[in-house]
Design a protein around this nucleic acid. Structure first.
Lengths: 342, 342
DNA sequence: TTGTCCCGTTTGAACGTTCAAAACACCCTA
DNA sequence: TAGGGTGTTTTGAACGTTCAAACGGGACAA
């Protein structure tokens, strides 16, 4: 029951070799003569040996721990995709024998301080930064600290820090393509106020896709913006629907706004789907429940890519100083709110 | 920039004392003469010393790490409250200088194996088990391992393992009280099939509250059960609403079911709230967005209680072998779906 | 034969901390 | 003045691992 975990010395004794040879079998098998290796591996299996992480961490100054801040639940928006992200990270870390260390912080400044502390005292190898936006102070701060990290999102187009991001423009573009294929011609955008990087990319995707289909001229006045709330979405959609000609389809840059749009549509006695198609963004559980089409971010792939990127940037990793950058395409999930042809 | 973290020896040298005295100042200040202590504390502050966790973990066989599995997002149900829980745990852990270590597992058996591995090799001090139900194998397995843990939920009423749980019966009872106060007399339950501990408690709360108000006789046939899905909730509610007399209020044991109930209500040309009041359970973001009244679990308090419970059960903690047990009451959040008086 | 090189293996030390025991200083009592 | 106690500080070792250097034995060339 309480058998102490065997150590490298126990294995060495059983196999009739020295401690270091056991260590080599585990960490650098090519250095060991094959028959010795077999003997040691048998001893390892017999004892159920597994290296002690604290000791290894102390010796090599690397804990195989990845730090990540857990965000508090945001009150106004829908459930973030943060928990999907954490799960994806943990899953990706597992394959590389790294674990996820969670911590909380009240704001970006606090997060930076927490990272510094963890990096120096807990030997956390690196960090994952979530929700990086243009002008975010965190990447520069961690660069200054010398702490390796990989960011979900980027401070700017040519960011010089390691990042992975979702191609937001491609997401709204896919939504437009889908709606056009369903016969829609007047496709509105319900977006966030200009200035947020994510929101701007999503708006750009809408615009360029319309342009590609030759619909941009008709749609200049179909671009409305407001803060991310249900009430806001309803108000913006109301404005659109009361115009003439009214749009027959709406692309919202978030599920929260999309829910508001559906409220406005129904309030006017129209049917979501047949009369006015609606597409949201993020594929939140709410979208699923409400049969709302939505652009789904490939969070699992993002998690894997981020962990890979981070590992590449660890001192122990391959010497690969070029900033890696990856942009992953989201996929549209079509549901009743946009399934019917127009 | 890359100054190595100062060690206990650096502090000792600066303060003109031995390593051990510095260690004592940090861990057992009462053993140190006050003027010495001050000198050492000044040196600590001057150098910005903080103890190295890996070294400490190696020496005292305690990592100040709490293991917790991240669940994958469930497809059918609404966003779980799992991310709120993780945040609460991390926050509570921070105050006790413990961090949260996340790991993934495919099923309970895998989770047990992962715990065993983490406990032995990573020196994780203890675990938090999420969503424990009657007959769950995990608590017994961890007891056998000798790994300390605290569970959210319990295997049975007189569980002999440390647990913290939400008083589910009190939650539905509060919903009933609220509806009665609003003038409702025929209050239905849309529940899960008998056998799930959580669902049974929630059903019991509904029943006892009705009994308290003398409404139980009228409501025997208002208890319907089905699996946790929107379609299921709609079907069950449809059955209820097509009876005569139909209920004027419905208590659902989950927000998922509650959403289904609202669908059924609207499909019959009735208004949610004025005609039929609906109350859900869990206060998910979806409930907020849909203006659905819902019973909110005090997850933040649960997180704090769990961490406290776990710390009490660590070998380093106070010798307090009595199984602590805490039952926390949820609170009803009233929104439009049940706000109007009947 | 002697020296050189290479491969596989072992040895001693080190990572930074805390435990256990020893040493020291001081006061009190016999 | 010796002996016992108490409170503070220091010493040496240990936690389990890996690094760096040393070691030993063939194979090969000079």
């Amino acid at each position: 029951m309480n058998d102490p975990q065997p150590t490298v010395s126990d294995v060495a004794e059983l196999a009739g070799v020295s401690r270091q040879t056991v260590s080599n079998v585990v960490n650098a098998p090519h250095r060991v003569r094959p028959e010795t290796r077999v003997r040691v591996e048998e001893a390892i299996a017999a004892l159920g040996y597994q290296p002690n992480r604290a000791a290894r961490a102390l010796r090599v100054q690397a804990s195989r721990l990845i730090g990540c801040r857990v965000e508090p639940e945001s009150v106004e928006s829908l459930a973030s995709i943060h928990d999907r992200f954490l799960h994806a990270l943990a899953e990706a870390g597992r394959e590389a024998d790294h674990h996820l260390l969670l911590f909380t912080a009240d704001d970006p400044g606090d997060e930076i301080a927490a990272c510094a502390r963890l990096f120096r005292t807990a030997g956390v190898d690196g960090f994952v930064l979530y929700g990086i936006q243009r002008g975010d102070p965190r990447p520069q701060a961690l660069l200054r600290l010398g702490a390796p990290f990989a960011a979900f999102g980027r401070t700017d187009f040519d960011s010089d820090h390691p990042w992975v991001d979702v191609d937001n423009a491609a997401g709204t573009a896919a939504a437009v393509d889908h709606l056009v294929a369903r016969g829609h011609r007047r496709i509105a955008l319900v977006g966030w106020p200009e200035g947020s990087q994510v929101g701007d990319y999503r708006a750009t995707g809408w615009r360029t896709a319309l342009d590609k289909h030759g619909l941009l001229a008709d749609s200049a006045h179909l671009d409305v913006r407001g803060d991310d709330s249900v009430a806001g979405g309803a108000a913006l959609a109301g404005y659109l629907l009361d115009r003439d000609p009214a749009p027959t389809a709406v692309v919202a840059v978030s599920d929260t706004l999309a829910v508001g749009v559906t409220h406005a549509v129904r309030a006017r006695g129209l049917a979501v789907g047949p009369d006015v198609a609606v597409v949201g963004f993020d594929d939140t559980p709410t979208a699923r429940v409400l049969e709302l089409s939505s652009v789904r971010q490939p969070i699992e792939a993002v998690g894997r890519a981020i962990v890979r990127t981070l590992l590449e940037h660890l001192p122990s990793g391959s010497i690969d100083p070029e900033p890696s950058a990856r942009l992953l395409a989201p996929a549209l999930v079509v549901r009743a709110s946009s399934a019917v042809s127009h």
